[in-house]
Write a protein that binds this DNA or RNA. Structure first.
Lengths: 337, 337
DNA sequence: GAAAAGATCGAAAAGCTTTTCGGGAACGTA
DNA sequence: TACGTTCCCGAAAAGCTTTTCGATCTTTTC
């Protein structure tokens, strides 16, 4: 334990430099009323002692702690992760640090974590939802700015940023149309998800704009591979002419491709398939690699962080902002002939 | 903006209760030298103002901030997540909050984040690695206790907790032996991973204990589905008699099962398959659902947090602790006849 | 009833930084 | 030389809590 030495304080620096703490502080913070030679001395002393200002004392004084809370309702869910990465990235470790909290989808726990964060005097909060549907607002009596990411708040006074699911659905359909597909089916997940309906709506709009209809009303089920397999069998039975398939998730698409292959359909020559989420592990290693709609979640997290900064800065936003999706093209929609 | 009110301070409480701040503090903290009636008054005032002590002031005084840093080298990687969940869980939001940092696998960035965390006077650090192989120690001159999780430190003076890969391999083999399989093949991932070799070693040991050998030396390749498919084809060609297959990851196992099915083998009746990682999304929805070795990462994170607590408390540990794996049995090793 | 013991409470300091404001020195000018 | 500026620097306060220690008040004991 050689390193028992407490970290150096400003008075240590001041003493070593032979000045007062006030002067040392001003020197280090670039205040004007310090002679250049004095400033130099102070800097050298600070360097020698590897001085780091104590953020607790700074925070106590300024009222700002340079910290934000990232409260996710489901850390396990793969959607939260890229959002958090984006946010963490945007904050940049030096100026702002991120407190991580996972509410495990439990409202009580969320309240608890919220109190803990507020007691730590975070400068702001990002609430990351597990699913894209609206969630209850924390209410207006939170003392710090709040940004809702992925799952928008149900209070339009709040600021939320979420994925534009209608756009995502449209993108998928337009892509299939663009490669000449005309008989397009839609298989998606849990009908309880608003996002599932939004994506279907977007796809239907795009088809309609091209003077087409889906071969049949969209199949709702679950977000799983097995549903993708089952639904595909049913759909193909009723509509063997299908040449394009829009899936509500990459898992569904994987199941769908499995079923298509077993039914003797070539992908993409007979049937082109588009997934949703662009979940690399599933998409890139599929047979063939799966084209998919990317919600750009990392960018979403980054935007959330920026907006939070603005709000902390006194320039809050309101309403729900929708981030457009991107299309990632892979083999499942790249004709080989 | 009704809620412009600054949070209440202890002097507000004291004033309302008609006592001094010293008395108020003692009353709230259960110190003895306070009359019961006075204490009662103070508590009521604190309640009324919904007073929360400012942790910055507390930390300034005690030197402890009640925060720890969670520095992961790869947030995207799915292994970090459960570890973080476990750690976050063990810390419990009230007593300790967690700073999240992602170094993105970049050493420079890691140094940067490390400085930021230390400047915030965290009470301790958990370093979460992206891969199970040893990593360079941060060195002994970090001023706070450090625990390495998943990727152990190369300095035996440090404390590290990681998954027992030998045990995991053994578990897989023993399970296959237990259901009567005798002609067992091993397909695993990147030969550059020490963990891949450890798992093979464990499996070979278990076979040896039963007087058996793998049908052939383990196949090393990559951690992908496509490698699983390819390797399985080669393996089956050389050894069509195989009745059990140990895979180094669930992705490999998925690929292997795909290939087995296409080669006309029934799973598990002809060939039983065990994966590694117990990655729910892949394992539960496979055909059939995949038995897999679970590294119990959440528990690993929890243990890391506990050990960090102990170290902060002045009771540090040293060396590498290996956490045993668990077997999750599903359909791919549950004979149907 | 007085002195000793015990019970309560408050003033003040410590923990560290930043900012304000006043004082002193150096300089220029008359 | 005397006066007014300008330039630097330091003392002190503020931000909030906890702890120490001395002071005051109550109770007990003889």
């Amino acid at each position: 334990m050689v390193e028992k030495s407490k970290p150096a304080t400003l008075s240590d620096v001041a003493r070593l430099a032979g000045v007062s703490v006030a002067t040392a502080s001003k020197a280090l913070n670039g205040r004007a009323q310090v002679r250049a030679s004095t400033r130099e001395k102070v800097f050298r002393s600070a360097e020698a002692l590897s001085f780091i200002p104590n953020p607790l004392a700074q925070g106590l004084l300024s009222g700002q702690t340079g910290t934000v809370g990232l409260l996710t309702s489901d850390l396990e869910g793969r959607f939260s992760i890229p959002i958090m990465m984006g946010a963490e990235d945007a904050f940049g470790a030096d100026s702002t640090s991120v407190f991580l909290c996972d509410a495990r989808g439990d409202a009580i726990r969320e309240q608890h974590q919220l109190r803990a964060l507020l007691s730590r005097h975070v400068d702001g909060l990002i609430i990351v939802g597990a699913r894209p549907d609206p969630r209850r607002s924390l209410g207006p009596d939170i003392t710090v700015p709040v940004v809702y990411a992925y799952a928008p708040s149900d209070d339009p006074e709040d600021y939320s940023i979420t994925s534009d699911n209608v756009h995502g659905g449209r993108l998928a359909a337009e892509h299939l149309l663009g490669i000449g597909r005309r008989r397009i089916g839609i298989i998606t997940g849990d009908s309880g998800y608003g996002a599932a309906h939004d994506r279907v709506t977007g796809a239907a709009e795009a088809l309609h704009d091209a003077g087409l209809e889906p071969v049949e009303a969209a199949f709702f089920g679950s977000w799983s591979e097995s549903w993708g397999r089952g639904a595909t069998r049913i759909l193909l039975e009723g509509h063997p002419e299908i040449d394009g398939l829009i899936c509500g998730s990459d898992q569904i698409a994987r199941g769908a491709m499995d079923a298509l292959r077993e039914l003797g359909r070539e992908i993409p020559d007979d049937v082109a398939v588009v997934g949703h989420d662009n979940w690399e592990v599933l998409a890139t290693d599929a047979r063939p690699p799966l084209s998919s709609i990317d919600m750009d979640l990392q960018e979403l997290g980054r935007r959330a962080a920026e907006k939070l900064f603005e709000a902390i800065d006194g320039r809050p936003s309101h309403g729900i902002e929708k981030l457009p999706c991107r299309l990632m093209v892979r083999g499942s929609t790249t004709p080989t002939h």
